[in-house]
């Protein structure tokens, strides 16, 4: 009878689910969002993922990547969602899903936090761009509504947002590359 069993619940330095979730959630959401075209659907999948993560946390092995573990669950939930949707309703095909999902899971060990990078990049935007961007996302208005509010043509707003996002993408990419090679 060996007695080197591991009763980790005795100690309290074990990471807890809520803390881990808070760190991982944006990445998980980003992952889901890249596969699920509608926000409302992505939210639903995220909630289902959270529910499973919450409930299955006992299966998670301390010391391994919580993010990778959660992403697996998210992947499963997206798959579930896709099956639920039915083939006709799918915007993206299986090829797309496989390519994105597989790669994202592989990347889940990436340490650099995209959010830090994005926050820094947002701070670098010009005041008007930043306002436009915040306005678009703060209340999640559509480009059309935003165009009305700002009394500008929708196409202008659309292009502006696209330009801002593209700039942010370039900036974030640059920062992440620098961080990871540092």
């Amino acid at each position: 009878m060996t007695d080197n069993r591991d009763y980790r619940h005795e100690g309290s330095n074990e990471p807890d689910c809520g803390r881990l979730w808070v760190q991982a959630e944006p990445r998980i959401y980003g992952f889901i969002r890249s596969l699920v075209p509608q926000r409302v659907d992505a939210e639903e999948v995220l909630q289902e993922t959270a529910s499973v993560v919450w409930q299955k946390f006992g299966d998670f092995e301390g010391g391994t990547s919580f993010l990778a573990w959660s992403l697996q669950i998210a992947r499963y939930k997206v798959l579930h969602f896709r099956r639920k949707q039915g083939r006709e309703a799918l915007v993206f095909g299986d090829q797309f899903f496989d390519a994105i999902a597989t790669e994202s899971l592989e990347e889940s060990t990436r340490l650099a936090d995209m959010h830090d990078a994005l926050a820094a990049c947002l701070a670098k935007l010009s005041k008007s761009d930043r306002e436009m961007f915040v306005r678009r996302y703060q209340t999640d208005v559509t480009t059309k509504t935003l165009a009305k509010q700002l009394d500008r043509p929708a196409t202008t707003i659309y292009s502006a947002l696209h330009r801002i996002r593209t700039a942010l993408v370039e900036c974030v990419r640059h920062r992440l590359t620098v961080e990871e090679t540092a």
């Binding site: 944006p26 959401y29 980003g30 969002r33 890249s34 926000r39 992505a42 994105i100 790669e103 994202s104 995209m114 959010h115 994005l118 961007f133 915040v134 678009r136 996302y137 703060q138 999640d140 996002r165 593209t166 942010l168 993408v169 974030v172 990419r173």
Partner: peptide, 14 residues
């Protein structure tokens, strides 16, 4: 993916 990630981060975690 990065583009969507930026978008997703903004829409949910602004």
């Amino acid at each position: 993916k990065l583009y969507i990630e930026v978008h997703a981060a903004a829409e949910r975690y602004l």
